[in-house]
Design a protein around this nucleic acid. Structure first.
Lengths: 116, 116
DNA sequence: ATGAAAGGCAACCTTTGGTTGCACATGAGC
DNA sequence: GCTCATGTGCAACCAAAGGTTGCCTTTCAT
């Protein structure tokens, strides 16, 4: 019943900074800790740690290029994360609808003949 | 472009324990810190703290009943959270599709006449 | 009245996100 | 080739969050 999700994947995208980083990486097609930190409210080192987290769960991967390390989103893994997001959302949405339907049914059974 | 989400709401459902708590509360229609902790891998006190977090963002509300405090999901606020989840998922999904389309277009422009 | 059960509070530990500071590597320009 | 600026990496340190244990208060039931 309850949707099975990869907690590591989820918590990786659970952080607001990491979400913005993924956004930036997707928009620009890639970036380094330094370039990302210029557009984020945290330091380069903080960004580097976040990139480490995203790297460990496979959401991004780094390509050394000279003295830079260019990170890019791993589309396949990212797609998995998006799919999990969607499935949890869908499951909860369905549950809400079911609850609402039951509540309405109870309402009706309590007022078998609405006045009017 | 990037979807605006309420970081507090998101991070509230970002915690795996809190997601399971919401699941339990939705399934059972309500519960106390004690009853929830019996079905979770953490102590009652930890559950109480999580309930505090969920309460602060309005995802649940408590109803004192004798010596118990019965918590239940606030459906309206929960629906908001689900909507945000869905919108982020949809936005990222759309972005992925767009990237894939562009990638294919580049591929084709590089091989104007595929051998065959 | 008294004991068991539920809850609240406080102290403490660990992890995580963040910072500063410094050392190392590498690319660019002279 | 040297030098210097730039980009990374590493370590120490700090604060907040999640988790635990211990203890005290409240309340229901016997």
């Amino acid at each position: 019943m309850s949707v099975v999700v990869d907690d590591e994947l989820w918590s990786a995208v659970g952080d607001p900074i990491r979400r913005r980083m993924l956004d930036l990486l997707l928009t620009d097609g890639g970036g380094t800790a330094t370039t990302l930190s210029e557009r984020l409210p945290v330091t380069r080192q903080a960004v580097a740690k976040h990139l480490g987290v995203l790297d460990r769960v496979g959401l991004v991967h780094a390509t050394p290029s000279g003295r830079e390390r260019i990170y890019a989103v791993d589309e396949a893994q990212f797609a998995r994360a998006v799919a999990q997001l969607s499935s949890v959302g869908a499951a909860w949405d369905a549950r809400l609808r079911r609850i609402k339907r039951i509540a309405e049914a109870i309402q009706q059974s309590r007022e078998p003949r609405p006045e009017g």
